[in-house]
Write a protein that binds this DNA or RNA. Structure first.
Lengths: 302, 302
DNA sequence: CAGGCATCATCATTAAAAGCGATTGTTTAT
DNA sequence: ATAAACAATCGCTTTTAATGATGATGCCTG
């Protein structure tokens, strides 16, 4: 009774529908002989006949036992079909995906990725969570945008180099390209010491520049408001600058730094050794494409 | 994707529970190698890996695809188990049975059969229907009590010979055994010309007796009331007499007829060539037993 | 960093079964 | 009496299931 085969139930259902072993066989693409043996096997496993065979050209009739088996069997077959369909949908890219992200990516890269993903897979469910920058935990996320390494059981792909640029009030610096040491002693507003920030500030030190950090906040809009208000300048990654639309702000100007600070790397992470869903795999592809399109934009050239 | 095997799903569920192919194999009574191949087969059929194998002693982890398969797979396995249990219950004698019956059997035989059946199988559902005597259709009944042949696609077993006896007012006939021809011209109340009735009346004619049928009804109580009221006598099968409790009625007396009229045969019928449910099979056995107990009763002796 | 350990994949082998074609046997319809 | 429709059965081939042995991988420990 434990050796139940879906194939046998399918045969039984076909026989019940057709009223004949032979026609059921035709419908299933088997020979009559095979169906006969399938039903025999099923009857062995349930411990009794499921059809009465009247002999001659009269249709077979289900037995009381057969009725019990058939009733449950059809449900079983329906569930099996549902499984197959769910798998097909999954392989076609439907399903759920959890993506972790952070400020600038949320604004610049993700919207495009999400839109393209939804266009390709209207049935998919995309869940985004923007973690606090202090807690870059991959947790149960499928994908996580982040700008640094994340432990050794995490793999990643680099999406783009995000160069640090100087944002100052228009007129504060005359040249487009500003030498690092010009910032020595200059007032700066900056991020807290999370993310890539410490590494950036080390670059100042190495260049002999010691700017005065007069205000720290993680909020980019707040930082830029401070710059506009004349509190000081800001050194921010291009992505954050672009996200805030600084290029089209008449009161501000974006400068390159000389020598350039090693750009932060925007990466897309996932747990190492885990098989991606087709949806996640596609999301990675799209993210790479989108990032590469961004790289081609004028402001990032050179 | 159509070659899904319950065995493989069971293996998958075990692996998911145990976190290891080997332990799953132990639990299922297979070797690790077998489980490995079962999962491989499952993965072939769903078109992708269902587990990530991190290697080393770390537990395997389900993939997104695996999660989809497992979710449906567990339901499938549950349904399969439900089927098995339903079959077991059925084979143990649970289920439903439809029995057709008629007056005297309803009163004398059936109650005992039903009680014993319910005692043996508390979970069973017994549905009785008392057909009009003119319409002895077996229809969708599993079993039908009836006193005559019922067409040639019906089999039966004889439960008992039910002899015809004369019921008269006490004092109407002095002897216990009444010669048939004493009824010539005598007033009789009788059943309508259904059931076995015509055959019985032919027996009178063959014996040269022509009783006057002064009233016909299918209601036994009515008939007996008429006998008590002096309308005439009645020739009824013992079962009907017994059912009405005539033996303990001081105003009436039961006589044998000489020569005896060939008794009617109380039979239990079912459609020919149909496999019985265990419940129906048992019901037949019980009915035979109950009838044979009745035959042993004094009034039927000799 | 080498060796031990736990784990899964693979391979060759054997046993089982699934499926097929041909045939037989049974029952109805002509 | 035949023919037609049907399922069971038999012998056969191919496929699959399960096994035990072996190899590969990646932890953990000393």
């Amino acid at each position: 009774m434990t050796d139940l085969e879906l194939r046998h139930l399918a045969a039984m259902a076909a026989v019940a529908d057709e009223g004949s072993f032979g026609r059921a066989a035709t419908r299933l693409g088997y020979t009559q002989s095979t169906v006969s043996q399938q039903i025999a096997a099923l009857e062995r496993s349930v411990g009794g006949p499921v059809f009465d065979r009247p002999g001659g050209p009269r249709p077979v009739r289900i037995t009381p036992l057969g009725a019990v088996v058939l009733e449950h069997g059809r449900e079983l077959l329906a569930k099996a079909a549902a499984l197959a369909e769910a798998v097909d949908r999954f392989q076609a890219g439907d399903g759920r995906i959890d993506i972790g992200t952070f400020q600038s990516v949320s604004t610049v890269i993700l919207p495009t990725v999400v839109r393209r993903l939804r266009d390709e897979h209207p049935g998919c469910e995309i869940r985004l969570s923007e973690e606090e920058p202090e807690a870059p935990r991959i947790g149960d996320l499928d994908l996580l945008f982040y700008d640094g390494p994340l432990g050794d059981d995490v793999e990643h792909v680099k999406l783009l180099d995000d160069p640090y640029l100087l944002v100052a009030r228009r007129g504060a610096f005359s040249e487009h390209s500003v030498p690092l040491d010009r910032l020595d002693g200059a007032p700066l507003v900056a991020w807290p010491s999370t993310c890539d920030q410490p590494r950036m500030e080390e670059a100042f030190v190495r260049a002999g520049a010691h700017p005065k950090i007069v205000f720290r906040t993680a909020g980019n809009e707040t930082l830029l408001a401070m710059v506009r208000a004349g509190m000081g300048s800001a050194v921010l990654p291009w992505l954050a600058i672009h996200a805030a639309g600084v290029e089209s702000d008449d009161r501000l100007r974006v400068h390159e730094l000389r020598p350039a600070i090693t750009p932060r790397e925007i990466c897309l992470h996932w747990r190492a050794g885990r098989t991606h869903s087709p949806l996640a795999a596609r999301a990675i592809e799209i993210a790479v494409e989108v990032a590469s399109d961004l790289t081609g934009e004028p402001a990032l050239e050179h």
